[in-house]
Amino acid sequence: MKNSYVRLGGILFLIAAISAGVLAFLNDSTKDLIAKNEAMAATSPEVLEAVMPGSVMFNDYADAALVETIKSENGKFVNLQTAVDGSNNELGYVVRTFSTVAGYGGDMELFVGISPDGKITGVNVVSHSETSGLGSRTTEPSFTSQFAGKDATAEITDFDAITGATKSSKSFLSAVNNAISIYDQYLK
């Protein structure tokens, strides 16, 4: 009686162990592809195109220690990534940061793309709590597109604020300028 329990348990264990072994092998051989798929899905195509035209995903920046340094020295900074295209060529930096000047609903959070030669490639709002219909218009392309192509080696002072939403516009600008200062200080 005892023996038959051991035998039954043993057979079940054997089946489970072989299954787990097969799965471990398959998991190992697919995990890189899966991680890449997840990374590509983490940012929507619209955001990718708006921040860095031609990019297919944002990768974590290779020098993790530098990212930690920036985090400790710049309180509004969130993350630094590299935008890459379909054949894994690096297209530029993507700085994720909060604004340094609050809008009506607090800080806005932005993606700012900067090319290796120091030009802004595009800006996209990650999150904000500005007034709907007024401050929220800072998220629209008609406003954000004016930053693309601007020089990222000096603070931007000259820009077209949205009429009736100056405070939100300035909050937006401060986030862009924080990204520029990070680029100038650590990446240039």
């Binding site: 035998r7 039954l8 057979i11 079940l12 089946i15 489970a16 299954s19 097969v22 799965l23 398959l26 998991n27 697919t30 592809l33 899966i34 798929n37």
Partner: peptide
């Protein structure tokens, strides 16, 4: 063995499900 066929089936089916899951994920 007959006595443990159901758990054995379940393990085998779960293994194939996971294989399909991993392949589709990749």
């Amino acid at each position: 063995p007959d006595e443990v066929r159901i758990p054995a089936f379940v393990i085998i089916i779960a293994a194939f499900t996971t294989i399909v899951d991993l392949l589709m994920h990749a």
